Structures are given as C-alpha cells and as structure tokens.
Measured scan of single mutants.
Amino acid sequence: QTQEFDNEEEARKAEKELRKENRRVTVTQENGRWRVTWD
C-alpha cells in the first residue's frame, strides 16, 4: 500500500505508526513529494 505526503514530517509520522504495527515500511522522496509504502 502507498500513501503520499507533502512533507517529510507527515511521512515520518505515518512511518512511525506503521512500524508500531510491525509492518515493513519504505519512505521515498520523489518530485518533492514523500511516499510511504508498506506491506
């Protein structure tokens, strides 16, 4: 699953929550947008 964010702060917040659920999370930056991908 993927979700896009406008800034790193929001993306990192989402990453932190997903990691609490023991998910594999990848955060990438593309064209000024932050993308959080998880399984």
Results as ranks from 00 to 15, higher is better:
V27W: 01
R12S: 03
K20I: 09
W34P: 00
Q29R: 09
K16F: 14
T26S: 09
D39N: 09
A14E: 03
E10A: 10
E30H: 12
R12W: 07
V27G: 00
N31D: 09
T28Q: 06
R19K: 11
E8H: 03
Q3A: 13
R33W: 07
A11Y: 02
N7W: 04
A11S: 02
L18G: 03
V27R: 02
E4G: 03
E21V: 12
V27F: 02
V36Q: 01
N31V: 02
W38F: 06
N7P: 00
K16Y: 14
Q3R: 12
E30V: 14
Q29E: 14
E9T: 09
F5T: 01
E9L: 12
D39P: 04
F5L: 01
E4L: 15
A14Q: 08
R33T: 08
V36S: 01
T26V: 13
F5W: 04
E15L: 05
T28G: 04
K13R: 13
K16R: 12
Q3W: 15
E8R: 02
R33Q: 06
R23G: 08
A14W: 15
Q29M: 13
K13M: 11
E4I: 15
K20T: 09
N7H: 07
T26M: 10
R19L: 14
L18A: 08
R24D: 11
E10R: 03
R24L: 12
V36R: 00
N7Q: 05
Q1P: 06
K16I: 13
N31R: 04
V25P: 05
Q1W: 15
R24W: 13
N22L: 07
G32K: 03
D6E: 11
N22Q: 08
V25R: 00
R12I: 05
Q1G: 15
W38R: 02
T37E: 11
E15N: 02
R23F: 15
T28P: 01
L18Y: 07
A14L: 15
D6W: 06
A14H: 11
D6F: 06
T2G: 06
V27Q: 00
R35E: 02
Q29K: 12
N7Y: 06
E17C: 10
A11L: 02
K20M: 12
L18I: 04
N31S: 08
E8T: 01
R12C: 05
K13E: 11
L18W: 11
D6L: 08
E17Y: 08
Q1R: 12
N7D: 09
R35I: 15
Q29A: 07
L18V: 03
K16H: 13
R19I: 11
E15T: 04
F5D: 00
K20N: 10
R19N: 09
D6T: 06
E9K: 08
Q29W: 14
K20V: 07
E10W: 05
V36T: 01
G32P: 00
E17W: 10
L18N: 03
R12G: 02
T26I: 13
N22A: 08
N22T: 05
E10K: 05
L18M: 09
T28S: 12
E15G: 04
E8I: 04
R24A: 11
E15R: 02
T2M: 14
R35Y: 12
V25W: 02
R33D: 01
N22F: 15
T37S: 13
R33A: 06
G32F: 03
G32S: 04
D39S: 12
K20Q: 12
Q29Y: 15
W34M: 00
E9N: 08
E17M: 13
E8A: 03
E30S: 09
V25M: 02
E4D: 09
K20L: 14
W34R: 01
A14D: 01
K16V: 13
G32H: 04
V27M: 05
W34T: 00
D39H: 10
Q3I: 14
V25G: 03
R23M: 14
N22K: 09
K20W: 07
T28N: 05
K16A: 14
K20R: 14
E10D: 15
E15W: 09
E15A: 15
N7S: 14
V36K: 00
